[in-house]
C-alpha cells in the first residue's frame, strides 16, 4: 500500500494483514554530487514502488526518509531511530529500510529493522523496458528475502 488516502483507508480496514513497513532512504547533496544523489533517489524510488506492487497487501510504503548528505550522521541516525520508534508503536512487526548509501551499513546494528543496501544503478541510459527488467529482477531477489523474514517470526 502506498502513502495515499485510498490505500490508507484500505490499510485501516485490514490492519491485521499489513505488518510490514518499507522505508526508502536517500540523501540530498549539492555541487558535484548532485547528480549522483538524484540517480540514487530515482533508483530507490523505482525499486520500492515495484516492491510495493508485488506486496501491496502486506506492506505499507512510507514516504522516503531524506537527509542532507553533509549533515551530522549522529543526528540523522537519531532521526531515523525516532521514525522507527513510532513505526513500531504503529503495530508494524517488520521494518525494511532500502538505501543505496553505503554509510548506513555502519549503523546497521543500531536499527531494529532490516537494512537492505543495494548499489545504485545508472538507469539514465537505459530504455524503459530495460529498466523494468532490471528492477524486476532485483525485486525477485528481494521477494525471497522478505518471505524469509516473514517466516522467521511466523
Amino acid at each position: 500500500m502506498k502513502w495515499i488516502p485510498q490505500d490508507i483507508d484500505t490499510y485501516l480496514n485490514a490492519k491485521e494483514y499489513v505488518d510490514t513497513a518499507v522505508i526508502p532512504i536517500y540523501s540530498i547533496s549539492f555541487g558535484g554530487e548532485m547528480k549522483q544523489s538524484a540517480a540514487a533517489a530515482e533508483f530507490i524510488t523505482l525499486l520500492t514502488s515495484q516492491l510495493e506492487r508485488q506486496f501491496t497487501g502486506r506492506l505499507l510504503l512510507f514516504p522516503p526518509f531524506t537527509y542532507l548528505k553533509n549533515e551530522n550522521s549522529e543526528k540523522v541516525l537519531n532521526d531515523l531511530q525516532n521514525w522507527e520508534k513510532n513505526i513500531v508503536k504503529g503495530d508494524f512487526k517488520h521494518i525494511f529500510y532500502l538505501t543505496s548509501d553505503i554509510e548506513w551499513k555502519a549503523h546497521e546494528e543500531k536499527l531494529g529493522g532490516a537494512l537492505i543496501w543495494l548499489p545504485s544503478l545508472l538507469l539514465e541510459q537505459m530504455t524503459e523496458s530495460q529498466k523494468v527488467e532490471i528492477i524486476n529482477s532485483q525485486v525477485k531477489q528481494l521477494l525471497i528475502l522478505f518471505t524469509q523474514k516473514w517466516q522467521e517470526k511466523g
Partner: peptide, 9 residues
C-alpha cells in the same frame, strides 16, 4: 495477477 485479498501480485 492481482490477488483478490489485498492486491499483492
Amino acid at each position: 495477477p492481482v490477488c483478490k485479498h489485498l492486491g499483492c501480485t
